[in-house]
Computed example of a mutant assay.
Amino acid sequence: MSKQLNIEAQQKFGEAVNTGNFELFKEVVAPNALDNDPAPGQLLGPEGYMHFFTMMRTAFPDFKVEVEHLVADENNVAFAYTATGTHQGNFNGIPATGKSIKIRGMQISRFENGKMVERWGSSDELGILKQLGVQVG
């Protein structure tokens, strides 16, 4: 598969996240795709991402991810991003605060035949909690 095809698949993944059109995950995520940094209880494959981002967009209806830097080879796409949103619904038991969040993160996705088969990632989860006013530590 070509590097460009993998980049396009990753961009479609981002489109799903940013628009809430989660059916797109079925086009770009393999059924048994492994997430090496899953959310608690996250399922494999497109359904896992559909469930996770439904939760995120319920808590942050204007949730957006903006890619800041992207590199790719024949099998992998890696990128740094900024995620933003306004807390307007329940997030991990935290009722809506109306506060805005802005966090950074990184992701590496491995592709086969134009579909994500494995993912590694890290987001500033502690930063979300602090920006929502949750006492941590």
Rank of each mutant, 00 (worst) to 15 (best):
G14P: 00
P38T: 09
K26Q: 14
N113L: 06
K3E: 15
T58Y: 04
L70W: 01
M50N: 01
E118M: 08
S100N: 14
V71E: 07
V134R: 06
D62I: 03
E47S: 11
P31Q: 14
I7D: 03
N36E: 13
Q131I: 02
F63D: 02
V28K: 05
T82L: 02
A16L: 06
Q4M: 10
Q135W: 02
V71N: 05
P61C: 09
A39W: 13
I7T: 04
R110P: 01
E8Y: 01
Q107C: 11
F22L: 13
F60D: 00
N75E: 15
Y49G: 00
T54V: 01
P61L: 07
H87C: 04
N36A: 11
K3D: 04
S100V: 00
G127C: 05
G89P: 04
N75L: 06
P31V: 11
R57W: 07
K12I: 07
T84V: 12
I101A: 02
T58P: 00
V77I: 10
N18H: 06
A39Q: 13
E23K: 13
N36R: 15
H87T: 04
P46H: 13
V117H: 10
G85W: 03
M106H: 14
L34A: 12
Q88A: 14
G105K: 05
T97I: 04
E66N: 11
L5C: 00
N76R: 15
P40M: 09
F91L: 03
Y49T: 00
S123C: 03
T97R: 05
N75R: 13
L24K: 12
N76C: 09
M55E: 09
D62L: 04
P46W: 13
F79G: 00
A33L: 08
V67W: 00
N18A: 06
F13E: 02
P61F: 09
N113Q: 15
A9P: 04
Q107N: 12
P61T: 07
T58W: 02
E125I: 11
K26D: 15
T86A: 08
E118W: 10
N6A: 08
F79D: 02
V117I: 15
P31W: 04
E112V: 11
E47W: 01
K12R: 15
F13M: 09
A80K: 12
T54P: 02
K130S: 08
R57C: 05
T19D: 10
R110I: 01
N21T: 11
Q107F: 03
N36L: 11
F53I: 03
G121M: 01
